[in-house]
């Protein structure tokens, strides 16, 4: 379902270039749970952005669900992000003026989903992260773990094929991190493909597959070895 082949990502910096990714090839099957680990600056976010159609490789091929998406026009890639890919960020990125319900409705609002359906689906998504009672609360009335769960509800509300999470627990205490990972793993068990970037070896160990990045070079590592 995800197929990267010989992907490079370079950033021009001053006179020279920075190689954020070097010749990365990676295949992820539907329903997999992949943990992406590596030191800071090794290219984890860069790789996730490319997988999420937020960024394009400088060189190489990327097929998503059998389609080469590198050359797709922006409108098509935006449609993919809206319908097939869910993104979870380290800093939640919830709109502070909207309630949890409103934040979860956001992708549907801009996707043109009718009001009634929006409400029902948002409630369902909030229920799946255990936050239905908090639907009317604004982000500043929620704890960090709850905010991240709202963000997860927003990521899955459009029924994507894959959820990409970039250090989703990086800002959370251990207990909240457990909650958040628990929610994601439960969704994975129901068939959602999951790619999680993490610093935490313990969290990574919970994944069936761990992929290791160092200085932009990718190595499959057996679970537990990180």
């Amino acid at each position: 379902m995800i197929e990267l082949q010989g992907v490079w990502r370079t950033y021009p910096v001053g006179e020279g270039v920075v190689h954020a990714l070097r010749d990365v090839s990676l295949t992820i099957a539907p329903g997999e749970h992949v943990a992406l680990i590596g030191p800071s600056g090794s290219g984890k976010s860069t790789l996730l952005h490319i997988l999420g159609c937020l960024d394009r490789p400088s060189q190489g091929r990327y097929c998503f669900e059998g389609r080469d998406v590198v050359a797709l026009p922006e409108a098509e890639r935006s449609l993919l992000r809206r319908t097939r890919i869910g993104f979870v960020f380290q800093f939640f990125h919830l709109l502070p003026r909207l309630t949890a319900q409103g934040n979860v409705e956001l992708p549907m609002l801009f996707g043109g989903v009718p009001r009634e359906e929006r409400k029902a689906r948002a409630a369902q998504a909030l229920a799946s992260v255990g936050l239905l009672p908090r639907a009317g609360h604004r982000p500043d009335q929620l704890s960090g773990g709850e905010r991240q769960r709202v963000a997860i509800a927003r990521a899955v509300v459009m029924n994507p094929a894959v959820v990409l999470a970039d250090e989703p627990t990086g800002n959370l205490d251990r207990a909240s991190a457990q909650d958040v990972m628990g929610v994601l793993e439960a969704m994975n068990r129901q068939g959602l493909t999951l790619v999680v970037v993490t610093h935490d070896p313990l969290l990574a160990a919970r994944a069936k597959r761990v992929v290791h990045l160092a200085d932009g070079v990718l190595a499959d590592a057996p679970a537990g070895e990180a």
Binding site: L79, I85, P107, G111
Partner: peptide
């Protein structure tokens, strides 16, 4: 900017934003 960036990341079409 961050709000617009988020909307884009969530796949909101640019014309609707």
């Amino acid at each position: 900017r961050a709000e617009i960036g988020l909307l884009k990341a969530l796949g909101a079409p640019a014309p609707r934003i």
